[in-house]
Write a protein that binds this DNA or RNA. Structure first.
Length: 801
RNA sequence: GGGCGAGUGGCGGAACUGGUAUACGCGGUGGACUUAAAAUCCGCUUCCCAAAAGGAUUAUGGGUUCAAAUCCCAUCUCGCCCACCA
């Protein structure tokens, strides 16, 4: 008898798939397509880890499942290669990012092949290929042409360690997402993509997406739409006006002072001789503080500017203060303070003894002893608006302000435009050059790509520019006959990953970024699988999709139909795997220990629901190996461990077979991989116990193939069968007699076998159940008040007294 | 502080629409095979009780229902996201 030797089987099938180019996808008119992808990885020097394997195995399982179901499947693969780690590695070791990336990709590719993934390798690319970033630069130019790529000088997040600016999305709790160091504010001229242009659409279409609620909520929070009004407050004795944003214009009559952010440009002109020194000192100190420090101390601080504003509703003079609880980055950087109806204003007013005026009456039903009431209610002390409901007064007051031209309705977003300049070498150069007056010009499309030159010293020079600035020979360029200087910033890596899903559909087009026919055949991506980038990447792809749809280059406005967000694989102790802790599990080690790729893949799908984090269990993987071994023995064994081929048709396994087909099929449709594997295990246990047929084994192998493709292929070859996904017949799932559960006063008291015909009718069912001895004994002494017979649920419930 | 989600054996988890709680796997344990071990195969394994009968049990306390892990309310715990956002 032969033994299950996964490594041998796997090498054989991997070689065959390679030579036969088994997974090359071709557009086929009239055949339903299925485009499945994972979020492409950054190929780090550490190689694949088990977290990747989980992510990729989900994709592969679905891709193979749909392929077996006759769909035209696209399952591509690529690499997100630009980024800091390669550059920092280069600075440390002198190995160029180009070289390191190539080496890393080679090892990733080797590992991926050893996992037996059904990848269309003909479409492979990485974002640092000039032939790829040529089109990333082209995308930039399209945005530039439409005014959606622009330059602005402003305070930006700056990471002093990585020496680059960061997008808002890359600042996590005041720290750099890459290196964890505290970020600073630095005033710089930078490139932006105008994602806010699409803020409303990005927000409004979230609800319709078949994405996890968690991700949808995060995106909504991130966009952070708020509706309100912008109101002008005249400065007393000056022509100056201060614009404030408020979501509660209904409380305007209760605004008793204004507060400006320390960075607010108007502050300077407001201070008088008496207050100037104090104001300047407060501003300097506040601006020195990092955001983390500002957040740590929530005790309100602030200074009076000495100036007053006029409340446009009451005509009253109100003091103008400076305080750091007002943020320059949100709204207008100035607020009207309504201490009676805002907690923060209340705290501030109490501390500095500023007036508090109630303008919203708490509904009497509310017995709330809070002095500051932030809810809705009837307006008081509000002139003509007294007696209105606050929720309705909002509109009325705004209309009144609009009439007097001192305010207007306004919607603002928490989301900022996307800052894409990076002062680093290892990224796609921004295709812009400056003339001698410093004016920006687009590099003509026929001069793309702007090649990232090979250099020796990658260290930024501390000037706020990338290492490219040290190469004047590269920076010089002639455009339309004029000498110009190239932009030395490169693009955020997220720009590169914002369109790769479409490049997969037409990966080697050297005339265009993609041909719309090909992309519109495959895309949008039907299933996109990842465990990271909940906001940034997934928001950017949606943004570019809408933009390119508007340019007529895509027929769809949402790039991802279904998003699966998989959980992490943690170390056995539940902690994150990390190199420094030395608790990393190497997938190749597991394979080479003799378990093989099939066991590893199946184990990672069996470990738990795909969307939850799971802890690696070194022992549990043995259980999956035993299961595959049993599959092998059923097919290749000579009877020692199985009951062999049945001479007659075996009704027992027939039922189990159809039940299993149904269960596995339905489970895969709802992405319940762990229960699908469990169903296969049950089926195998059944086959061990009962005489079975080669039909049983064929079905087993077909159902097993998405999980353990090598072994399943080997089994199918032996059985002389194809891998077409089997169908179940409901007729096998109903038997002549059915088990009826009998409950008495809600408790399970008996299980009674009843003929199916009788069980299908409520009256007959009750009669049949009452005939049972055990049930009789239960019902004998007491009076039956109510009987509920449910044929469909196979249940009878008695209530007795 | 606000929002969302989750709490089921020794462990990972199953129960999809309220209807047999604890599938499947790990671990544990008993047996078969073996001189022995490994591998393999076959049992048992939520808890209480010597066994059966029986009882209890899905974080805790209430409620709705003939029937609740599932629905509702409150409390506790954990996780994630947002957060001086006007």
């Amino acid at each position: 008898m032969s033994r299950y030797e996964p490594l041998k089987i796997e090498a054989k099938w991997q070689e065959r798939w390679e030579t036969e180019q088994s997974f090359v996808a071709v557009e086929k008119a009239g055949v339903p397509k299925m485009y499945i992808a994972e979020m492409f990885p950054y190929p780090s020097g550490a190689g694949l880890h088990v977290g990747h394997v989980r992510n990729f195995s989900i994709v592969d399982c679905l891709a193979r499942f749909y392929r077996q179901n006759g769909l035209n499947v696209l399952r591509p693969f690529g690499y997100d290669t630009f980024g800091l780690p390669a550059e920092n590695y280069a600075i440390k070791t002198g190995v160029s990012p180009q070289e390191a990336t190539e080496t890393n990709i080679a090892s990733f590719r080797k590992q991926l092949k050893r996992l037996g993934y059904a990848i269309d390798w003909s479409r492979e690319f990485s974002t640092s290929d000039p032939e790829y970033y040529r089109w990333t630069q082209w995308c930039f130019l399209q945005l530039y042409k439409k005014g959606l790529a622009y330059q602005a000088e402003n305070y930006q997040w700056w990471c002093p360690v990585d020496q680059t600016v960061l997008a808002n999305e890359q600042v996590e709790g005041g720290r750099c997402w890459r290196c964890g160091s505290e970020v600073e504010k630095k005033k710089m001229k930078q490139w932006f993509f105008k994602i806010t242009e699409y803020a409303d659409e990005l927000l409004d279409e979230i609800d319709a997406l078949d994405w996890p609620e968690k991700i949808k909520t995060m995106q909504k929070n991130w966009i952070g739409r708020s509706e309100g009004a912008e109101i002008d407050f005249a400065v007393d004795g000056s022509k100056e006006k201060i614009k404030v944003f408020t979501t509660r214009p209904d409380t305007l009559f209760g605004a008793t002072f204004l507060v400006l952010a320390p960075e607010h440009p108007a502050v300077e002109g407001l201070a008088n001789d008496d207050t100037k020194q104090k104001v300047d000192q407060y501003r300097t100190e506040a601006m020195k503080k990092s955001d983390i420090e500002r957040q740590e101390n929530k005790e309100k601080t602030g200074v009076f500017t000495g100036a007053h504003a006029i409340n446009p509703a009451t005509g009253e003079k109100m003091q103008i203060w400076v305080a750091d609880y007002v943020l320059m980055g949100y709204g207008t950087g100035a607020i009207m303070a309504v201490p009676a109806h805002d907690g923060r204003d209340f705290e501030f007013a109490t501390k500095f003894e500023l007036p508090i005026r109630k303008v919203v009456e708490k509904p009497e039903t509310l017995v709330d002893d809070e002095i500051c009431y932030t809810g809705e209610g009837e307006l008081v002390n509000s002139g003509n608006f007294d007696g209105e409901q606050s929720s309705e007064a909002r509109e009325q007051i705004v209309a009144w302000l609009e009439q007097q031209e001192v305010g207007k309705k306004k919607v603002i977003y928490r989301m900022r435009d996307w800052l894409i300049s990076r002062q680093r070498y290892w990224g796609a150069p921004i295709p812009i050059a400056y003339d001698k007056d410093g004016k920006a010009h687009a590099v003509p499309e026929d001069q793309l790509p702007v090649i990232l030159p090979k250099i020796d010293d990658y260290t930024p020079d501390n000037s706020g520019r990338s290492a490219l600035a040290k190469h004047p020979e590269w920076m010089e360029v002639e455009i339309d006959g004029k000498k110009m200087t190239r932009e030395t910033d490169t693009m955020d890596g997220y720009a590169c990953s914002s369109w790769y899903l479409w490049r997969y559909c037409d990966a080697h087009n050297n005339k265009k970024a993609w041909s719309p026919e090909k992309v519109n055949y495959w895309a949008p991506t039907d299933v996109y699988v990842g465990g990271d980038h909940a906001v940034a990447h997934l928001l950017y792809v949606r943004f570019w999709c809408k933009f390119f749809a508007d340019q007529g280059l895509l027929d769809f406005r949402e790039p991802v139909k279904k998003l699966l967000y998989n959980g992490y694989i943690n170390a056995p102790d539940g902690k994150k795997m990390s190199k420094s802790k030395g608790n990393v599990i190497d997938p190749l080690d597991i394979i080479d220990q003799g378990y093989g790729a099939d066991t590893l893949r199946t184990y990672e799908l069996f470990i738990g629901p795909y969307d939850l984090d799971a802890a690696w269990d070194t022992k549990a993987i043995g259980g999956v190996y035993r299961f595959l071994n049993r599959c092998y023995n059923l097919t290749f064994g000579e009877g020692e461990n199985s009951k062999g081929e049945a001479q007659v048709k075996a009704p027992l396994t027939e039922v189990a077979r159809h039940r299993t087909i149904k269960k596995v099929t339905e489970d895969l449709h709802r992405n319940s991989f762990n229960t699908a594997v469990a169903a296969l295990m049950e089926f195998v246990n059944e086959l061990y116990k009962n005489p079975h047929t080669s039909e049983d084994l064929t079905v087993l192998a077909r159902l097993l193939k998405p999980f353990a493709p090598h072994l399943a292929s080997e089994m199918l070859e032996k059985l002389g069968a194809d891998d077409v996904w089997p169908e179940w017949d409901e007729k096998y799932l109903v038997s002549d007699t059915v088990e009826i559960v009998v409950q008495v006063n809600g408790k399970l008291r008996a299980r009674v076998m009843v003929a199916k015909e009788a069980a299908d009718d409520a009256a007959q069912l009750e009669e049949a159940v009452r005939a049972d001895e055990k049930v009789k004994a239960q019902l004998e002494v007491k009076q039956v008040i109510k009987v509920i017979a449910l044929p469909k649920k196979r249940l009878v419930s008695f209530v007795i007294k």
